[in-house]
Design a protein around this nucleic acid. Structure first.
Lengths: 188, 188
DNA sequence: CCTGTTCTTGATTGGTTAGTCAATTAACGT
DNA sequence: ACGTTAATTGACTAACCAATCAAGAACAGG
């Protein structure tokens, strides 16, 4: 039933399905058939629109990155250095970004950057942008913004990891608390 | 050439090879053939000694855990809470435990705990023991040892993640510095 | 020697999966 | 009506891989 203009809808469905399946499985070892079935279509159609499994993964990575970047941008124009800092942290644990499957998928995409050049580039851009945002926000709040930004970045990754590793629903409030407590100590 | 007593040697070689290959690939998606070739034997022999690929992975996990536990135990009888705390941290970044392939393999084994019950149990034991060791060491150094221990645990995981993600050789000194700086601030 | 045991592997099997292709269906413009 | 184009899939293939097995090779003890 060729209703025209299916492509963007199908692609979006596949990206969502890929994130869900990867997040669910906790591994990139999911088949195109799984993703396609979850997205309500045949594996052949998934290949038709994306060409390869890697390209599906890359699109999913870009999607997560774009979503996260948007939530940060939504909150950055807040006034004051401390306001921006809190904004970045809050964005990192906002519901859209802190769904278990999203976080799990994101961590698993880290692994993709080992074998795939484009994935590596995406990840580097993300890390660099986060670092730069944090440094700017930390200026004036501490004497060593670089060191604090690096520690904060690592801590966020670690909290992500633990959130995914812990069974049961992810607890965004708890995660955010851990980060905020650290900031209290670091900026005292 | 059946020189008697090959089993422990072969098993050790396979465990090392598995850690190396998983660490190298940044993924559990390595074949038994790869592992066996790296260990200098046929895939059939690997199956003969371990029975399945999962069992090789589990043995590798246990090996990493045992090695880490030993380095902690070697250092714990040091006197003073602060000495013990530093000891645990130092053990976490000791050369045997902080080789790129080892850390990478360890993080990838996290993923195994999603699908494999035994791997999940191993991981939980490790996390619980680390947490408990940290809490004991932190008692007397801070008013909220639990919170600090959890933050510290997450930070170590995050630093592991970043060390592996950063190209080039892993920098143990830098990693240890990050943790120590955090402790300065947290225990001030 | 000979016999049993350990060690070792080539060959094979059964199952899985990414990716291709030809054919079908249905909208759209003319 | 009709030809063009987008959407869609079933069937297929080529590759890969975990696991099995039967058989060979080498040593120890008697």
């Amino acid at each position: 039933m060729p209703k025209l203009g299916a492509e963007p809808i199908r692609k979006a469905a596949l990206i969502n399905a890929a994130i869900f399946e990867v997040g669910m499985a906790g591994s990139l070892d999911v088949t195109v058939a799984q993703i396609a079935r979850r997205a309500g279509m045949s594996p052949a159609l998934a290949h038709h629109y994306f060409g390869s499994k890697e390209k599906i993964f890359l699109a999913a990575m870009r999607y997560i990155l774009r979503t996260y970047g948007q939530s940060v941008r939504d909150v950055l124009p807040g006034r004051g250095a401390r306001g921006r800092l809190d904004g970045i942290v809050r964005a990192s644990f906002a519901p859209q970004n802190f769904q278990r499957e999203t976080v799990s998928a994101w961590l698993n995409f880290y692994a993709l950057s080992f074998v795939n050049k484009d994935a590596g580039r995406l990840l580097r851009v993300y890390h660099q942008r986060l670092r730069s945002n944090l440094i700017v926000a930390l200026r004036g709040l501490t004497d060593h913004p670089e060191r604090t930004a690096d520690t904060l970045g690592a801590l966020i990754d670690g909290v992500y990891l633990r959130a995914v590793l812990t069974p049961g629903p992810t607890d965004a409030a708890d995660a955010e608390n851990t980060i905020m407590s650290y900031l209290e100590e670091a900026l005292a």
